[in-house]
Design a protein around this nucleic acid. Structure first.
Length: 554
DNA sequence: CACCCATGTATCTCGGGCTA
DNA sequence: TAGCCCGAGATACATGGGTG
C-alpha cells in the first residue's frame, strides 16, 4: 500500500468525522460525542478536591488504624514482659529446687571479678575453650557498667540461685528499657533501621552491620562481603554439622528453643485495601472466584521465569547462588527487606553470590537483568516457604491431635491450649521443623560460610508458626492473611530485636543448640527440580563451593 | 508557572496451572 | 496431591504533559 493511498480505516474515519484535525481549544467538534471531551479547570479542581478529601479520609483512617496497632503492640509488650518475668521466676525456682540447698558458690577472682554473674553453664565445655570465649565477652560488654555497680552492692560470693535472681532482675530492667524501643509499625523505614542497628549491637553483627563496618563512612554504598573465612574454627558448630552431619553435637544442649515469644500482633490482614479499592475505584465488585487465564507469552526482558537465566549460571543457580542468598538473608535481622533500607543490598549480595559460585564468569550484576529478576523473585519464594511449610505442619498437627471427625470446638480447644504461652506450640519442635525445612535445607551449597547466626530465618519460622495457628483459631481452617512484610514484618523484627533472641545470642552454645535441634529434621538435600534436571555434577559443587582464591577454587 | 492528572516503571504479593 | 513455578494484579513512586 502506497503512503498516498488512504487506508480502509482512514476512509472510515473521514466518513465518520466531518472535521479531521480538531483542537481542544477551538471546539469545532463536539468532542463529547466521541468521548473525548476535555474537562474545564473547574471540573478538574472539583475532581481534585473530591480526590483530596478522599485521600485525607483514607489518611485519617490509616492513622487511626496505626495508633490502634501501636496500642495493641503496647498491650502485647506488657504481656510479654509479664511472661518473661514469670518464666524466669519459674526457671529460677526450678533451678533452686533441683539444686536443693546445694551451696555451689562462685569464687570471683581476678579478671572475672567484673562479671560476678558468669554462671555455671559458661564453665561447661563449649567448643572453643581456653579462658573467655566470644560469648563471655559479649555478655560482659552487655552487662558492663551494671556489673561494676553490682560489685559494690553485692558480696563477691553468690549462690547459683542468687546469681540467677540478680540476672532475672536485670532482664526485667532490660525489658522495661526495651519497651521504649518497641518496634513500631514501619511508618518510616529509617527509624526501624536505626532501631535494628541499636538492637543488634553487642549481640551479633548481622550482614548489614558488617557491610557498614567495612570501612570509613562514605556516601558510597559499601560492597557486601560474603565472608568466606579461611579458618574452619570460625564456623559455628551448627554450620559444620550442616556440611557434615557426623560432627558431634555440642554438650550442654537441651534441644529447646526460646519459650518467650512476642505475640502475633494481628491475625488478620488489616483489610487489604486492594479489595476495597477495586470496588471504590472501579465501581465494580471484585469477583471472589477469579478464574485465571492461560499463561501468556511474556517479554523475556521482563520474565521472572528461570528459563530466562543465562546458560552459564544455570548449573549453579539453584545449587549455589540461591543457597548463598538465602543464607545471607537468613542472617539478617530483617529478612523481609531485600534492599535493607533503600541501599542496593540485594544487588551486592547477588554479585557476591555469583562471584563465589562462578568466579571465572566475571558477571556484573545490574538491576533488572535476568539473573537479578529471577533471584529476586526466588527470595520472595523463600520467604513464603516458611509459611507454606508451617501451614502444612499445623494442619497435620490439628488432624493428628483432633482427628478427622473433630468438632470446631475440639479444634478450638486444642489450638487454644497449644497456642497458649506455655503450650506445645512453643516447645521448640514446630519452629525447628519449619526452620529446617524452609531454611537449612535450602542453604546447602551456600558459598557463605559466615559466622552470623540465622536469626532472621529463625524469626521467620517463629512468626510463621504463630500466624499459622491463627488460621485455626475459629475451630476450622480459615485462610490467613498471608505471610509478608506487611503481616509478619513487625513480628519478625520483634524476635530479632527483642529480648528472647538476645537471650539466645548471649552464648554461642544456645543458638548452636537451637540449630542443632533443627538439623535433626534435615533429612534430604533440597534439590531443585530444574537444577537437578540440568545434570548437576557433584564434583562441580565441590569445586565451586570452595572459597575463592583457595587452591580448589578454579 | 504551579497544579493536577494520566501514564510509566519497579517492586511486591498472590493465586493457580503444571508436573512429578 | 503437594509443591514448584511464574504471570497477574496491586501498590508505590516517578515522570511528562495539559490546563488555567
Amino acid at each position: 500500500m502506497s503512503p498516498e493511498e488512504p487506508s480502509v480505516q482512514d476512509n472510515y474515519l473521514s466518513s465518520q468525522l466531518t472535521t479531521q484535525h480538531y483542537s481542544t481549544r477551538k471546539k469545532t467538534v463536539d468532542l463529547a460525542q466521541f468521548g473525548l471531551k476535555k474537562r474545564t479547570q473547574t471540573e478538574i479542581s472539583v475532581g481534585a478536591q473530591w480526590k483530596r478529601a478522599e485521600k485525607d479520609a483514607a489518611k485519617t483512617e490509616k492513622l487511626e488504624a496505626s495508633s490502634a496497632k501501636i496500642q495493641r503492640q503496647k498491650t502485647g509488650i506488657e504481656r510479654l514482659k509479664k511472661l518473661e518475668a514469670e518464666k524466669l521466676r519459674e526457671y529460677t525456682e526450678d533451678e533452686w529446687f533441683s539444686h536443693g540447698q546445694d551451696t555451689a558458690t562462685y569464687e570471683d577472682a581476678g579478671p572475672h571479678e567484673s562479671d560476678p554473674l558468669s554462671d555455671s553453664e559458661e564453665s561447661q565445655p563449649e567448643g572453643s575453650q581456653g579462658g573467655k570465649d566470644d560469648d563471655d565477652e559479649q555478655s560482659q560488654s552487655q552487662q558492663g557498667s551494671k556489673g561494676k555497680q553490682r560489685e559494690k552492692a553485692k558480696p563477691l560470693q553468690l549462690t547459683a540461685a542468687e546469681k540467677r535472681r540478680v540476672r532475672a532482675q536485670e532482664l526485667r530492667e532490660s525489658i522495661a528499657a526495651n519497651n521504649s524501643r518497641t518496634p513500631t509499625p514501619q511508618l518510616r523505614r529509617e527509624s526501624s533501621t536505626k532501631m535494628k542497628a541499636k538492637m543488634m549491637t553487642g549481640l551479633l553483627p548481622d550482614w548489614h552491620a558488617k557491610l557498614q563496618a567495612g570501612g570509613p563512612a562514605t556516601n558510597k554504598l559499601p560492597a557486601p562481603q560474603v565472608n568466606v573465612p579461611t579458618s574452619q574454627g570460625l564456623i559455628p558448630t551448627w554450620k559444620s554439622r550442616l556440611q557434615d552431619p557426623s560432627t558431634p553435637f555440642p554438650t550442654g544442649f537441651n534441644g529447646r528453643t526460646v519459650n518467650s515469644k512476642p505475640r502475633a500482633l494481628q491475625c488478620s490482614r488489616a483489610a487489604k485495601d486492594s479489595d476495597n479499592d477495586v470496588i471504590s475505584r472501579k465501581g465494580v465488585v471484585a469477583n471472589p472466584a477469579l478464574t485465571r487465564q492461560k499463561q501468556s507469552v511474556v517479554d523475556p526482558d521482563k520474565s521472572i521465569s528461570t528459563d530466562v537465566l543465562p546458560a552459564w549460571i544455570k548449573p549453579f543457580f539453584w545449587s549455589e547462588v540461591m543457597p548463598t542468598l538465602r543464607d545471607i538473608y537468613g542472617g539478617l535481622s530483617d529478612p523481609w527487606d531485600l534492599n535493607q533500607a533503600d541501599s542496593d543490598f540485594f544487588l551486592h549480595a547477588l554479585q557476591r553470590a555469583t562471584d563465589a559460585a562462578c568466579p571465572d564468569q566475571h558477571y556484573e550484576a545490574t538491576k533488572g537483568d535476568p539473573v537479578y529478576r529471577v533471584a529476586h523473585q526466588q527470595m520472595y519464594e523463600w520467604q513464603r516457604d516458611f509459611m507454606k511449610a508451617t501451614l502444612k505442619a499445623v494442619q497435620e498437627g490439628v488432624l493428628e491431635q483432633c482427628g478427622k471427625e473433630a468438632s470446631p470446638g475440639d479444634i478450638k480447644q486444642y489450638v487454644t491450649a497449644t497456642f497458649a504461652p506455655d503450650g506445645e506450640a512453643y516447645n521448640g519442635t514446630p519452629e525447628g521443623k519449619i526452620f529446617a525445612q524452609a531454611h537449612l535445607a535450602g542453604i546447602q551449597g551456600s558459598c557463605c560460610k559466615d559466622t552470623v547466626y540465622p536469626v532472621g530465618a529463625l524469626a521467620l519460622s517463629m512468626a510463621a508458626v504463630q500466624l499459622s495457628f491463627c488460621t485455626f483459631a475459629q475451630g476450622k481452617f480459615v485462610p490467613g492473611p498471608g505471610f509478608s512484610k506487611v503481616t509478619a514484618g513487625i513480628l519478625t523484627l520483634g524476635y530479632t530485636s527483642g529480648s528472647s533472641f538476645s537471650q539466645l545470642l548471649v552464648k554461642k552454645s544456645r543458638f548452636d543448640g537451637v540449630v542443632e535441634a533443627a538439623l535433626a529434621y534435615v533429612h534430604v538435600l533440597k534439590v531443585h527440580k530444574k537444577g537437578n534436571g540440568l545434570g548437576l555434577q557433584p564434583v562441580q559443587l565441590m569445586v565451586y563451593s570452595s572459597p575463592p582464591g583457595s587452591p580448589t577454587a578454579k
